[in-house]
């Protein structure tokens, strides 16, 4: 219950001076109904101490199969300006979709690569690179001008490489050592998203949370919220979606 409450609440917490070694991208649940459906989304993203943007794209290349691509780019800076960081994640996935009237069920499996970079006073830095494999299930329901989606993503997160200046401080070195000792991590993420609009443009609000008991110890951001636009680009080569 608490999980769903967290997902539905606006993001109001603002912490100070944290450095992160993982932040979840939006768990994107496309609304795919038929072949050639294509969505492109851009989203402004915010988490505790960082913000950024992400792109999503899906294309249904057959009546049941679709491709998905995501890219995340976040940045953060401490209020005193002496610490900053950024993170990137790019991934691609192949999936299947099962439309049922106005309900779209999607399952994707994919892989991606990313990196987090944190810079501390005196120019000390910590850079971690990782691979992420995932499988996700999403469901999206359309009712008039409203689309509501929810999803679960199971991640296999493997930190493959790190360059760490010991001067980043004991606290961060401890987190990184914990990451090194425990990688890979398998954990779920949950999301809800709310879309308002009409074809081909939708306003999109989404929230994703990480479910891992040691997330704080590992220096992971446990929640992100995004606000953006979603464009059904197939609209431009297909004037009207045939009714099923």
């Amino acid at each position: 219950m608490r999980r769903w409450l967290a997902l539905s609440l606006p993001w109001v917490v603002w912490c100070a001076c944290n450095s992160y070694y993982y932040a979840p991208n939006t768990l994107y649940t496309p609304h795919l109904i038929e072949r050639h459906d294509a969505e492109l989304g851009i989203c402004g993203l915010r988490g505790s101490d960082f913000s950024g943007f992400e792109f999503h794209g899906t294309y249904a290349f057959t009546n049941h199969f679709a491709l998905m691509a995501n890219h995340l780019d976040v940045r953060g800076r401490s209020p005193s300006q002496d610490r900053r960081g950024n993170g990137r994640l790019s991934e691609a996935a192949l999936g299947v979709y099962f439309p049922l009237r106005q309900v779209s069920n999607t399952v994707f499996v994919g892989a991606g690569t990313g990196q987090v970079f944190n810079e501390f006073p005196k120019g000390s830095r910590a850079t971690l690179k990782f691979h992420r494999y995932f499988g996700q299930y999403g469901i999206s329901v359309e009712q008039g001008a409203l689309r509501i989606g929810t999803g679960i993503r199971l991640n296999y997160l493997h930190y493959r490489e790190g360059h760490i200046d010991y001067r980043v401080g004991e606290s961060d070195v401890s987190k990184i050592i914990l990451i090194e000792e425990n990688s890979p991590f398998i954990f779920p993420e949950f999301s809800v998203n709310l879309r308002i609009g009409s074809r081909p443009v939708w306003a999109n609000l989404c929230s994703t949370i990480v479910e891992h008991e040691r997330a704080k110890e590992l220096g992971w951001a446990t929640q992100t919220i995004g606000l953006g636009l979603l464009l059904e680009v197939d609209h431009f080569w297909r004037a009207e979606r045939p009714k099923k």
Partner: peptide, 18 residues
């Protein structure tokens, strides 16, 4: 294939320096 890929992942290669 994805499962095989995860199985092929090497141990983390972390370099600490001062």
């Amino acid at each position: 294939s994805l499962l095989l890929l995860t199985a092929c992942e090497q141990k983390p290669d972390f370099e600490y320096y001062y």
